[in-house]
Design a protein around this nucleic acid. Structure first.
Ligand SMILES: [Zn+2]
Ligand SMILES: [Zn+2]
Ligand SMILES: [Zn+2]
Ligand SMILES: [Zn+2]
Lengths: 130, 130
DNA sequence: CTTGACCCTGTAGTGACTACAGGGTCCATG
DNA sequence: CATGGACCCTGTAGTCACTACAGGGTCAAG
């Protein structure tokens, strides 16, 4: 029984200590045992679960999506179509965002080569004001 | 002197009425005159300014960047290098976001073709738990 | 015994809105 | 002239996923 503190859990997962407490508060990470002084004591289950959460966040899944994926992950016998749907929806959203940002990149790229010296002839101000 | 109401200003600029009041509250749009009943009365200056704001937001500029760009826009004799810098920085940020989202798209694309039937063999759950 | 790194709770702030709640006003129709 | 519905007002609270304190307690090394 090698338990570790919240700081050690943060170091091992790359998650901020404040964020770990926040995940506990919203019920994403279960409340751990406490030491006599009230310090949180984490075990390997918490470590695995927080790694899962961290990877989900790194992939851009929302907290609610991760909550659903965690619920699924604890039931290996369930059909996985809910997980597949969540991932497909998220991929579609990522692609939509990329398309939107590429539109912005194009528009900004047109504006950015401004050789003017004053605001009166500035391409950027002109693009916004016209 | 044809003044219009907040609803008409919203219709003409495509900006939500609540958002217009919010812009006023944060000092982005100046307080307009009021009718006897307290209704806001907008003129062409407000219309132009809100159009400017709207275009800036559509291009993804932050409120603070738009505030700075608006300040510049009222001084045609100023050098425009601040505007150019703001646009270049924003373009760089957009490109950074695109790169990040493309990383996500790639990672999600690898996961998404899951032909498993249960969570135990699901590619998505596996990618997160491993 | 002191120092500094860690831990605790609880609250408030971030950005850019959005959504009420609880009222007042305007105008066209009956 | 009354009434109904669309509009307007203020002010506050909620969204998302954290992050930043304030004000304390605890632990281990020197
Ligand atoms: Zn099960
Ligand atoms: Zn310029
Ligand atoms: Zn000037
Ligand atoms: Zn699957």
């Amino acid at each position: 029984m090698k338990a570790f503190t919240i700081g050690q859990l943060g170091d091992r997962t790359g998650v901020n200590v404040e964020t770990i407490r926040y995940y506990e508060k919203i019920g994403l990470l279960p409340e751990p045992a406490r030491s006599a002084a009230g310090y949180r004591q984490y075990g390997d289950d918490h470590l695995r679960r927080l790694h899962f959460i961290r990877r989900g966040r790194d992939l851009g899944f929302s907290i609610e999506a991760i909550r659903a994926l965690l619920r699924l992950a604890t039931h290996p016998d369930y059909p996985c179509q809910d997980a597949d749907r969540l991932a497909a929806e998220h991929l579609a959203e990522v692609e939509r965002k990329i398309a939107e940002l590429e539109r912005l990149r194009h528009a900004l790229g047109e504006m950015v080569n401004c050789r003017a010296h004053t605001v009166a002839e500035c391409r950027i101000i002109d693009a916004l004001a016209s």
